[in-house]
Structure formats: structure tokens, C-alpha cells
Write a protein that binds this DNA or RNA. Structure first.
Length: 410
RNA sequence: GGAGGAGUCGCAUAGUUGGUCCAUUGCGGGGGAUUGCUAAUCCCCUGAGCUGUCAAAAGCUCGCGCAGGUUCGAAUCCUGUCUCCUCCGCCA
């Protein structure tokens, strides 16, 4: 949520920020309602004051009159307030000033490229072909059981997956992150507060209607909201978590995209980072998260590039976002592997998460970033493949997997 | 799932025959006074919002898990709901 005082003073900034994100807003309507709201509030408060005086004087007659008048004004106030608040929640977070103006992903900026692309003296296979050859990925049976965009991982793929998770946890715990296994179902109101139900976001969620719960799309959802309605101790900031969860996405609107293999599934596992930092320290933290994500790619020795999202490619609650994209030989291009976003104080306002500094309580800044999802397996299979379909295990993972190479079964 | 009990200002607590509660006290936090130093003592402030202002002073409203209701008046009574605790049942 954007600070209403900020909107009052800078309506044009808010309008522009939303337009840059491709969202049309009627800020004047909100300001008019806000005005009306405050006028009514003053009126109601005046009446209550009189009511309180009458009550103190035991003036029953006067009290009755005031009560009737008050009820009428209060109901007006309530409806205006509700509409005002509803509209306020529909305002997206504003992009940071350094974010490039652009309509969609084609206008994202490539910041840097790291690592040499692998050279094959044979035609490289794609990850699914390799996965089937090695008997470690099965999407056919998953389709039978669960439908499209599901997969079974088997055999060495599991150990590879767990190795990635262990590497992530080990590295991040050393950095001071608090490990956490969060719930994968959250209340709808939580998802709304996070800013992921607006602008069609609801379409990408799996909902359990009977229980009023939503399956998380990432551990961010249940980790960020952990501290809802709390005042954090400033001494504990920055507070950093590394969490693991299965993630669920309906992938509405991505029909036909990445239908092959395990690149884009309805269910996948992910290790996620979340930081709560002091007001104004999110820029620094954002660079830190990005550097950690780079470190992971470098440990795996995978070639990557960093892409900085343009305004049009930022999600509703996001103020700035970087993607780390890894080289995928079979596609002959870089594909998103991890990403990191800052939401500034936007989510903190909606979730009411503060910290106290001297006499003031201020909203924290909240950031999130991916450590590893299941996607790195795609990248590893493809970048580390050999002519016979075997795949070498990246050096850094071998101590966890216990094997150096995955070979075809027969 | 069944039966009880509880939820009060950062934390802990007082207050439930409805009005003297602009919610008590302690701790923690901030500011100030006193004081050779340290310690100690004392005073003020320390939930949210609105009006007001350069800022303030000041005033008002709301706030006792949440949402409603009764009443001239609700922390206190009623209804619903959420969360936690205890016991029983079921269960990985």
C-alpha cells in the first residue's frame, strides 16, 4: 500500500508510476473520496464528542437525539471509508527511479553477462531428452496422474535436487539467514495483503474454497507474512530468512509456453530468501541478495546474465526486480533461473510490519529472492551433458550427491 | 470432532454488580532534573487517527483479539467469529 499522505502530496507521481507499470488509475477519484472521508470523520467525531458529554451529564433526552443523528453519519462514513480503502489497495507499488521505463519483458535491460558458453562437438540434447535417457525425469506418467505441467523426478535427480537445497541452506545459514520451513497454505487475506491477488494475480493461485486457503506460489508468501502485525526489534534488523517450500502455480496465461519438460510446472520446490531491513536500506540489501544469487551460479559454474526488469515487467507489489538468467543450450538462449525483488515498504504497510527506532515506529522494507528452485536441474543437465547423454555433476555438489556423474541406465 | 478456560497500550499486569477508567501498575524504551564519578532518586513522555501548525501548543475521536448488537452511556451485558491453553476422541 502506498502512504495516503504521499498520495495527497504527489498524486501525479502515483499516477505516473502506475501508468509506467501498465495500470490505469483514477487518483483524483481516490483523493475526492479521501476528502469526503475526512470531512465525514470530523463530523462524526464532533457528534461523538457531544454524545460523550451528554452521557456524562446523564442527559438521556439529548443522548437519544444525538444517537439517531450519529447512526446516520456513521453509516455514510463507513461506506465512504470502505470504498476509499478498497481503491487504495488497488494502487500498485511504484517502480524505483532507477528502473527503466518499458512496456514488457522485451525492454528489460541486460546488466552483465558472466561465464563462457559451453561448446559441444555434438548436437546437445534438451533436458527432457537427457532426463528420460538417464531415467531421472518422467513427465508422461505425471500427465496420466496429474495432468500437464507436472513431473516425477527419480533416481539421481532427487539427490541432485537435495544437493542444491543443501548447498543453499549451508551457504545462507553461514551468512546469518534463519532457516525456516513455512506452511504452504495461507489465508486468502494474507495473499491479498502481500499484493498478489490484485490485477488478475488471483488467477494464478490454487484456492481451497472450503477452507478459505490458498496454496503458496513461493515460500515468500508465508515467510514475509510471518511477522504480520508485529513490531520488530531494531536490533534484530536486518532479519533474514532462508526457507524451503513446494510452490504451486496455475500458470494461467502461459498456455503453450514451456510445455516441454520441467521448465514450467504447476508444482516445484524452491529455496527462497526473505529480508526485513530498516527503512531506506532496501537498495543496499537488494544488491546483496543479487550478489548471493550470482555466487550460487558461480559455484555451479553456469553461464548467466543479469536482467533488470523494466517498469512494465514488474509485479504489483514490486519496486525493482533483477532476474538471473542461465544459459540453456537447447534453446540457444538465457532463461530465468532466479530473481530478486524489493517491495520497499509496500508489503510492510499492507501487512502492518514495523520496527521501533527511538520514539517512532516505522515500516520495514521487505525483499525476497530465489536461492534455488528445481530449474537449476534443467541447466545442469543441459550444460554438463556429454555426447552419450551422461551428465557430470558440478564439483560443488559432489560432496552432497556422492556421485560425480549420471549415466544412461543401459 | 466434543467439553471447558482465556485473549487489556512493546512485554507483563489491575479492572467485568455498565457511568469517578480521558484504562491501573511494573518492566523495557525516550527526554529532563539532581549528583565529584559510578550507582541511586525524582519528573515528563512512550497505541492509532483527525483537526491544527513551518514546526508546535492544544483539542477531539477511536482503541481492552476481531465483527456486530443492546444502552443516553460498554473493557464490563448479548450474538457471531478468530486465536491460544487444558481435557476427551481420532490420527501421521
Amino acid at each position: 500500500m502506498i502512504d495516503i499522505n504521499f498520495i495527497r502530496k504527489n498524486p501525479e507521481v502515483v499516477t505516473k508510476g502506475a501508468i509506467d507499470k501498465g495500470i490505469a488509475l483514477d487518483v483524483n477519484r481516490i483523493l475526492t473520496l479521501d476528502d469526503e472521508y475526512r470531512n465525514l470523520q470530523a463530523k462524526v467525531q464532533g457528534l461523538r464528542e457531544q454524545r460523550n458529554i451528554a452521557a456524562k451529564e446523564r442527559n438521556v433526552e439529548k443522548g437519544r437525539e444525538l444517537k439517531a443523528e450519529l447512526e446516520a453519519e456513521e453509516s455514510k462514513l463507513k461506506s465512504v471509508e470502505e470504498e476509499r480503502n478498497k481503491l487504495l489497495l488497488e494502487i500498485p507499488n511504484l517502480p524505483k527511479p532507477d528502473v527503466k521505463l518499458g512496456e514488457n519483458e522485451s525492454e528489460n535491460e541486460i546488466i552483465t553477462k558472466v561465464g563462457d558458453l559451453p561448446k559441444f562437438d555434438f548436437t546437445p540434447r534438451d533436458h527432457l531428452e537427457i532426463g528420460e535417457l538417464l531415467d531421472i525425469i518422467d513427465v508422461k506418467r505425471a500427465a496420466k496422474v496429474s495432468g500437464t505441467r507436472f513431473y516425477y523426478l527419480k533416481n539421481e535427480a532427487i539427490l541432485l535436487e537435495f544437493a542444491l537445497k543443501q548447498l543453499a541452506f549451508e551457504t545462507l545459514i553461514k551468512e546469518g539467514f534463519i532457516p525456516v520451513l513455512p506452511p504452504v497454505m495461507v489465508k486468502e487475506e494474507i495473499m491479498r495483503a502481500l499484493g498478489y491477488m490484485e490485477q488478475g494475480g488471483e488467477e494464478d493461485m490454487y484456492k481451497l474454497e472450503k477452507d478459505g486457503l490458498v496454496l503458496v506460489g513461493t515460500a515468500e508468501h508465508s515467510i514475509v507474512s510471518m511477522h504480520k502485525d508485529e513490531i520488530l526489534d531494531v536490533k534484530d534488523l536486518p532479519k533474514r530468512y532462508v526457507g524451503f517450500s513446494t510452490s504451486f502455480r496455475r500458470e494461467a496465461g502461459s498456455y503453450g509456453k514451456d510445455t516441454r519438460g520441467i521448465m514450467r510446472a504447476h508444482q516445484f520446490d524452491k529455496v527462497e530468501m526473505v529480508s526485513f531491513v530498516k527503512q531506506g536500506e532496501d537498495d543496499k540489501e537488494h544488491e546483496y541478495m543479487l550478489s548471493l544469487e550470482q555466487r550460487f551460479l558461480e559455484m555451479l559454474k553456469l553461464p548467466y546474465q543479469i536482467s533488470k526488469m523494466c517498469t512494465g515487467d514488474l509485479g504489483f507489489p514490486v519496486a525493482r526486480k533483477y532476474d538471473i538468467e542461465v544459459w540453456i543450450p537447447s534453446e540457444d538462449k538465457y532463461r530465468e533461473l532466479t530473481s530478486t525483488s524489493t517491495t520497499g515498504d509496500f508489503q510492510a504497510r499492507r501487512l502492518n510490519i514495523k520496527y521501533r527506532e527511538e520514539q517512532d515506529s516505522k515500516y520495514v522494507n521487505i525483499l525476497n529472492g530465489t536461492a534455488f528452485s528445481t530449474r537449476p536441474i534443467v541447466a545442469i543437465l543441459e550444460n554438463y551433458q556429454e555426447e552419450d547423454g551422461s551428465v557430470l555433476v558440478p564439483q560443488v555438489l559432489r560432496k552432497y550427491t556422492g556421485f560425480d556423474k549420471i549415466s544412461p541406465k543401459k
